[in-house]
Design a protein around this nucleic acid. Structure first.
Length: 876
RNA sequence: GCCGGGAUGGCGGAAUCGGUAGACGCAGCGGAUUCAAAAUCCGCCGCUGGUAACAGUGUGGGGGUUCGAGUCCCCCUCCCGGCACCA
């Protein structure tokens, strides 16, 4: 056995062995239980980043652990290959996105292989290949014919200089990233998936996913945002015709407190009002500037302007003014809201800003009669009384059964829920409204005015309209020799792509040049891995054999969009008869972000240049660029991303220390679900541990062959070590399988190795215990550091196959245990008692102890709390 | 702004069901080995006071529940993720 740990050599050898024997090939025909372990596939951005290493190591640990436990494991890998960065690279380097993407895939595949992941490479797929996206196009045409996909107008960011649609990411402080022009909102036709039709099922389905983190399910539930409310109308007359302004509210109980209505700038009523009102037209134009991102909309200053129109309150008959408000979203509900400034924070701010009346219609139950008011005068109980200046503290602290409706005529002194029902019934009787379930979730717009994406399989014919491409004409192949220039979609300039014959009438027609949102590709790839070679359709029977995915692993940043779309797509495929399950992912692990410091310099025009942490030097809390020694500004600690140039290249780590050290360090530095703040320190420690492990095994193997301990009496030290081994085995199994917390599993094995190094003696029985400990420790570490484990196991037990060790219950038995002794909750000492001692015996031992005598000072204890196996607390 | 999460020594983190706060590792300090260094090995290591034994104090801040709170409840601060065209 080699005395020194040489990672490069053993990693090479191990990887060659695994490749030659195809051990990681998932068998479609195995009779062992299946375990489908899937990590979110990477976008081929160029090279692996730390987030990839973390993600795929977590997946690999779980895959390898289950393989050692006897499962038929499938761990596939592929490429989420369409997307915006390829176009940006194309513009910057004058290379076609296709060529750039394929080169990146080749490089990153090599990097993944160097990390020694137990991946079944025979199932590799790339979403930009026609044999993948043709089935996406096929499903699109099916869904289009079913009406699940439809076309409507939608608002996008428009760059008036570059004459192009911008992604939200390309809008920086309201301006186009390349042109610097003020961005405008523009309405264009787009295709939509009717995801709202599945809103209820997507919500209730969350309850069938015990293997998902609560926080992800909460986020999805809030995103879907089911609310029961009332949709009703304010009637009005315009141009001699009777019209209705529809609104939706979850707080119909406050309807008598309405003092105005607010509509979105895009609302038809606003447009109509602006016709004869230049000031209003200018205001609406101003509202249409800026990005469409909700975060921008929500944080901007609340502005509004009176339209001059009045509508009629449906229950009081009062005239209510209609305002345009930039905080009202056209895309949510009706694009119009009733405003109750007394009981809604945004309405309250708006009313104060524009001098609109505020009418209180909710009263606290504790002061709602004269008698109760007398008992709790406002001077002593200000918090119970409504006051516009402390609106928030009064209202926010109330739950629905603490308040009553008042100032509201016939609805006075009703509880709010009863008032909603009564008001809804009265509005229904007037034919002006009804109870309605509303979702925050909007239909999924998938049209992108981009080149590097999956072509939407629609042909536009002047005679026949929008015609889906017939199945036999699929795929609509995207030409791969295109170099975009940043001004619009280059497909529009490709006559050979655009011009075609209408499949229905045969006449001259135009092909759709929009491509699909890349989230569409990533919504079904997990199913295609089961049958990547199937040419007869989207999926075959193997999909049901492998699905659902047993363990899905990916970044927390995908908690809502990707995971919701994938769940939605699974239901679409189910309803097409392609899969039989309802949910795609049985268990989900959302790894935290890998974050790092950001550094930048700001130019005079406000443009920021970002510098990589590797190129920056820190001195006394200030940062300097290594190349010129000049200071740079320190930004926040953020998710490693190209846009902030704060990624740390894992390749250097692998080159210097080997893949096992990189894997060990990423698993040891933080628990998977927490964000991992990158620092170079600590890598050395992980490497040191592997060297120590190697040396321990080496020194033992040098002593000659020995069989693992198989029973009998042991000296005390060996017996204690053996107990620790089996405790460790229990803990590591639990940490990996149930807790999915690998840092503590590693720590436990480190402790075991520290204890092993202290075990003395070279007699046969001690050596047999050492053999048992080493074999088990190497196996426990194998999922995390597979290369060194492979090499050491071959030395320890030549020719044998690794399998997860079994816990020896008899090794765990202990005669005496130690309990903590507290007096009044403060730790004052320890006592030793027999493991079998009952409460009375423990209490007696505690009271008799020296520490208890000292702190009791002769007083009789009031109470003694005994927590079995843990502690005794004497209360004086 | 809204939704979700987080904050524990100089640093990363541990404490799994309300029961020994700081496991394991990094950095640091002391020692052994060495001509010397690296590597390795042994020991110390929250803070304050004390030679020490020990005492007090300590989990972002404020309050509460409990025999007992890092953990549960209420309020607040800061940081991170998402917000529908980054992936």
């Amino acid at each position: 056995m080699q005395e020194k740990y040489l990672p490069t050599e053993i990693e090479h050898a191990a990887q060659q062995k695994w490749t030659a024997s195809q051990v990681y090939r998932a068998r479609d025909d195995a009779d062992r239980p299946k375990y489908y372990c899937l990590s979110m596939f990477p976008y081929p951005s160029g090279k692996l980043h730390m987030g990839h290493v973390r993600n795929y190591t977590i997946g690999d640990v779980l895959a390898r652990y289950h393989a050692l436990r006897g499962f038929n494991v499938m761990q596939p890998m592929g490429w989420d290959a369409f997307g915006l960065p390829a176009e940006n690279a194309a513009i910057a380097n004058n290379v076609p996105p296709a060529a750039w993407t394929y080169a990146n895939i080749d490089h990153m595949r090599t990097q993944l292989q160097a990390l020694g992941f137990a991946i079944d490479w025979s199932r590799e797929l790339a979403t930009c290949k026609p044999d993948y996206y043709r089935w996406e196009q096929w499903l699109f045409t099916r869904l289009f014919e079913k009406g699940v996909i439809y076309k409507k107008m939608a608002t996008v960011n428009w760059d008036p200089v570059d004459q192009t649609v911008l992604a939200n990411e390309q809008v920086i402080e309201g301006r186009g990233w390349r042109s610097g022009a003020l961005v405008e909102k523009r309405d264009i036709p787009m295709y939509f998936f009717r995801i709202t039709q599945y809103a209820d099922e997507l919500l209730s389905g969350l309850d069938t996913l015990p293997g998902w983190p609560e926080r992800v399910k909460t986020m999805q539930a809030n995103w879907i945002g089911k609310s029961v409310g009332v949709r009703f109308a304010f009637p009005y007359q315009l141009d001699g015709k009777n019209e209705k302004l529809w609104v939706f509210t979850t707080r119909a109980d406050t309807i008598m407190g309405v003092t105005f209505c607010a509509v979105a700038a895009e609302h038809p009523l606003a447009t109509r009002a602006a016709e004869n009102n230049p000031a209003l037209a200018a205001f609406i134009a101003e509202c249409k500037q800026g990005s469409v991102a909700e975060a921008d909309m929500a944080t901007m200053e609340k502005k509004g302007m009176d339209t001059g129109f009045k509508v009629t309150h449906p229950l009081t008959g009062e005239q209510v003014p209609v305002w345009v408000g930039n905080y009202v979203l056209m895309s949510y509900g009706e694009g119009a809201v009733m405003a109750v400034p007394a009981h809604d924070e945004r309405d309250f701010e708006f009313a104060n800003a524009h001098g609109l009346p505020i009418k209180q219609v909710i009263q606290n139950t504790l002061v709602h009669t004269d008698v109760l008011r007398a008992q709790r005068p406002e001077s002593d109980y200000p918090e119970l009384y409504f006051d516009a200046t402390r609106w928030k503290s009064w209202y926010a602290s109330k739950s629905r059964d603490e308040v009553l409706v008042f100032n509201s005529g016939k609805y006075d002194w009703m509880y709010t829920d009863d008032a909603v029902d009564a008001i809804a019934a009265d509005l229904a009787a007037l034919n002006l409204g009804e109870k309605k379930t509303q979702f925050r979730l909007r239909d999924w717009g998938i049209s992108r005015q981009r080149y590097w994406g999956c072509p939407i399989p629609i042909i536009h014919c002047d005679t026949c309209g929008d015609v889906p491409v017939p199945a036999e004409q699929l795929p609509v192949v995207l030409p791969e020799d295109v170099v975009p220039d940043g001004a619009g979609n280059p497909l529009n300039k490709r006559a050979d792509f655009v011009n075609c014959a209408c499949p229905k009438c045969g006449g001259a027609a135009r092909r759709e040049t929009d491509t699909m949102d890349t989230f569409v590709e990533s919504s079904w790839y997990y199913a295609r891995y089961a049958c990547p070679d199937f040419e007869g359709g989207m999926l075959d029977a193997r999909a049901n054999q492998w699905l659902p995915v047993d363990q899905y692993i990916g970044g927390i940043e995908h908690a809502i969009l990707h995971l919701l779309y994938a769940r939605f797509f699974h239901k679409l495929m189910r309803d097409e008869g392609l899969v039989s399950s309802d949910e795609p992912f049985a268990n989900l692990l959302t790894q935290g972000m890998v974050i790092a410091d950001t550094y930048y310099r700001e130019a005079a025009d406000g443009k920021k240049t970002w510098f990589n942490p590797a190129d920056v030097e820190l001195r006394d809390g200030n940062a300097f660029l290594k190349s010129d020694g000049q200071p740079v500004d320190i930004g926040g600690t953020e998710k490693m991303a190209k846009s902030k140039n704060n990624g740390v290249d894992p390749q250097a780590l692998i080159d210097q220390y080997g893949a096992d050290t990189a894997r060990l360090f990423t698993m040891f530095a933080a628990p998977p679900e927490q964000s991992l703040e990158w620092s170079d320190a600590g890598v050395e420690g992980a490497h040191r541990f592997l060297k120590r492990l190697w040396k321990l095994a080496h020194d033992h193997v040098q002593g000659g062959a020995v069989a693992a301990f198989a029973g009998g009496e042991l000296p005390e030290a060996a017996k204690t070590l053996r107990r620790q081994l089996h405790q460790t085995l229990q803990k590591v199994s639990d940490d990996i399988e149930r807790r999915k917390q690998f840092n503590t599993a590693i720590a436990a094995v480190m402790e075991l190795m520290n204890a092993l190094a202290k075990l003395e003696g070279d007699d046969a029985v001690t050596r047999s215990v050492r053999q048992e400990v080493l074999e088990a420790a190497v196996t426990m570490l194998a999922p995390i550091v597979p290369h060194i484990a492979e090499a050491l196991y071959a030395e320890l037990k030549p020719g044998a196959t690794m399998a997860w060790p079994k816990v020896d219950e008899s090794a765990l038995v202990q005669d005496e245990i130690e309990l903590m002794l507290q007096v009044n909750g403060k730790l004052r000492g320890q006592i030793r008692v027999a493991a079998t001692a009952d409460k009375a015996a423990i209490e007696a031992a505690a009271l008799a102890s020296e520490a208890a005598q000292k702190y009791l000072e002769g007083q009789a204890p009031k109470k003694v709390v005994v927590v079995p196996g843990r502690l005794v607390n004497i209360v004086v």
